[in-house]
């Protein structure tokens, strides 16, 4: 166990934000889910008792007869904003006094940094480079992430859970979002920061970064397994496999999503276009874990090989 190596990585000034995220994200998830569960209990109670639903206060927050619905911004909101500003300033001051921003040697194109890492918030993308070519990991997938995020309000036809925390009423959307945010984005950043060492090789926490280490990895491509050798053959084969993946994954997802009960009700509200777009983004999201699995389990690198691009 090389504690020194661990300390080196954790205490690198630019890595502090990720260490902070390590605590902040679980905390706020817990904070939100706690309120969600409280609301869910209230919902269950009201759903069981339609009479009470007509008169009962519909929040888990206290409300008493005679209280006004609204309060003045001054002072009730401004004082909070002021306090928040002071607290943030104090945190920043303490952080800035105790920890210096890094300054390495002057830029030198002839002296390659190893590992050369992007800023921490882009390390998820850099980590994806292991599984996808740069045009996918660096351009297409990030664009899809942004477009996919922007499309969320237009795909989510579930009218429940607008303006309050809940888990039960939005199981699907919350699961999908948390999977994307925590597994596909944050976990990849953690790996890129704490695990990847020289040569972007995998070093377990506590393993010394060995600059002369070489890993012999024999990666194969999927067409090779089927002894397809011609360029045409590989191109067509890959296209068929990818199309089949979208077809099968879509069908399976459809089985799960639109099968029964509440999900089916929401499904019926969606237009065909909405549904297909949602399917596309969900299936594409699953592409990353899938490629990770086939790489690590079967040492398969590319699925689809053409003269212009490989996936």
């Amino acid at each position: 166990m090389d504690w020194h190596q661990i300390w080196d990585i954790v205490s690198t000034p630019d890595n502090i934000p990720i260490v902070a995220l390590f605590f902040l994200v679980p905390f706020y998830t817990w904070y939100a889910f706690r309120q969600g569960r409280a609301n869910d209990r209230l919902i269950a109670q009201l759903e069981a008792d339609p009479e009470a639903a007509k008169t009962h206060h519909r929040k888990t927050l206290p409300f008493k007869e005679g209280w006004t619905r609204e309060v003045h911004v001054w002072p009730y909101l401004l004082r909070i904003e002021f306090l928040a500003a002071i607290i943030v300033t104090v945190i920043l001051m303490v952080w800035s006094i105790t920890l210096n921003a890094p300054l390495e040697e002057p830029a030198n194109p002839n002296l390659t940094m190893n590992p050369a890492k992007a800023p921490w918030y882009f390390l998820g993308l850099q980590e994806m480079l292991v599984y996808f070519d740069p045009w996918m990991a660096g351009v297409v997938l990030p664009s899809l992430i942004l477009v996919g995020l922007a499309a969320i309000p237009f795909m989510d036809e579930n009218p429940l859970g607008s303006g309050y925390y809940t888990l039960k009423q939005r199981k699907w959307s919350i699961t999908a979002f948390c999977f994307g945010f925590m597994v596909l984005w944050l976990a990849m950043i953690f790996i890129g920061t704490f695990i990847r060492g020289p040569g972007w090789m995998w070093f377990w926490p506590g393993q010394t970064w060995d600059h002369s280490r070489v890993i012999f990895e024999v990666n194969r491509d999927l067409p090779d397994l089927f002894h397809i050798t011609s360029a045409w053959g590989k191109g067509i084969f890959g296209a068929v496999v990818v199309a089949a993946y979208y077809g099968i994954a879509g069908w399976l997802l459809h089985k799960v999503i639109a099968r029964k009960g509440f999900n089916q009700r929401i499904y019926k509200r969606m237009s065909m276009l909405q549904y297909l777009i949602m399917q596309f983004f969900l299936i594409t999201m699953l592409l990353l874990p899938l490629k990770m699995i086939i790489r690590h389990a079967f040492r398969i690198k590319y699925i689809w090989i053409t003269p212009w691009f490989n996936i």
Partner: peptide, 12 residues
């Protein structure tokens, strides 16, 4: 947007 009153499934 909130915290707004919870909505029930029967009210969709």
């Amino acid at each position: 947007s909130g915290p707004s009153p919870v909505m029930l499934e029967s009210e969709i």
